[in-house]
């Protein structure tokens, strides 16, 4: 899986010196991605990629094994009336649901991702967060989606945030670690960039925008800023880090804009679900409807697409 941090040598930078971000400039750049016109075979290729990059997610207090089982079935059988469609990349659940999910997706190639570290607030002591993580890993999670301590970050305790991520990474063992920045609480793009740098240097395999519980979530401006951070990190250290925008990407058009952005900022190496994911619950059906519309030429109704 991801390259071990130890396999490359680099020094930890001063995170107060992370590159500055000009928001208006970012908005202009993003609008250029949004103006790309993706048609015909390029569109079909993009839609299929998007499906295959989804982390199909349920993160609710009322989640039950029953709900999770049904979602897992959907993950492997997106729209069986149309054969040849890819599956999603992973299902994403709370630690208590990992065992159930793991059993359900067995043999499908679909990964099980678990949120952890007192998701979504992260307001727990490190020992609790470590236990939370180990529990999920022991239950079979392939991937861990942790949250950073935003309060500590905003009060300038970058070393605390860094050390916490490094500790969780160690607890993950072979599971890949996605670090959720919760950009809606960091507010500025300067903060997003700095948090991205901290997460990557601390050992993140993926950086992820949001929990889905806070608005705004994965705006293109935020994702763009994180993609630039990933590119700079690769240039500096040689280590490839993945990206997961989560929350708010609910339709095909937004998904395609995101893929265009990945393609143009990072390049084709990132256009696989090994390196790029969408955290979403309702995106899959909209992509499916677009695929069917493109193939049949007829606008679709949600009644024909299962809602699990």
């Amino acid at each position: 899986m991801a390259k071990k941090k130890g396999s490359a040598t680099f020094s930890i930078p001063d995170f107060t010196q992370s590159p500055r971000i000009d928001k208006v400039g970012v908005e202009e750049r993003v609008s250029r991605f949004q103006k790309r016109s993706i048609k015909k075979e390029a569109k079909m290729q993009g839609l299929r990629m998007a499906l295959n990059m989804i982390d199909l997610t349920t993160l609710e207090g009322k989640d039950t094994p029953g709900k999770v089982k049904q979602m897992c079935f959907k993950a492997a059988h997106l729209h069986d009336v149309h054969p040849g469609l890819p599956t999603v990349a992973a299902v994403c659940v709370y630690p208590s649901m990992v065992a159930t999910a793991k059993k359900e997706v067995e043999g499908t190639g679909i990964k099980v991702a678990s949120v952890s570290t007192a998701f979504p607030s992260g307001q727990a002591p490190l020992e609790v967060k470590l236990m939370d993580t180990k529990f999920a890993v022991d239950a079979g999670a392939d991937e861990i989606d942790m949250v950073i301590s935003r309060g500590k970050f905003l009060s300038g305790e970058y070393n605390f945030v860094f050390d916490e991520i490094a500790a969780i990474k160690e607890a993950c063992g072979n599971a890949r670690l996605k670090v959720i920045l919760e950009t809606g609480e960091l507010v500025t793009l300067d903060n997003v960039r700095r948090a991205s740098d901290i997460a990557m240097y601390a050992g993140a395999d993926f950086i992820k925008t949001s929990t889905g519980k806070i608005q705004p979530a994965a705006t293109m401006q935020v994702t763009y800023t994180m993609l630039e951070a990933i590119r700079d990190f690769k240039l500096k250290t040689g280590i490839q880090v993945g990206m997961k925008p989560a929350g708010g990407i609910s339709n095909s058009k937004l998904a395609l804009h995101n893929l265009v952005m990945v393609n143009e900022v990072l390049g084709g190496e990132w256009l696989t679900n090994e390196w790029f994911r969408f955290g979403a619950s309702s995106l899959a059906n909209d992509v499916l409807m677009q695929i069917m519309k493109t193939e049949t030429g007829v606008y679709q109704s949600s009644d024909y697409f299962s809602i699990d």
Partner: peptide, 8 residues
């Protein structure tokens, strides 16, 4: 010069 408009 750009004027930043912080979201929200």
């Amino acid at each position: 010069h750009p004027i930043e408009n912080i979201g929200g």
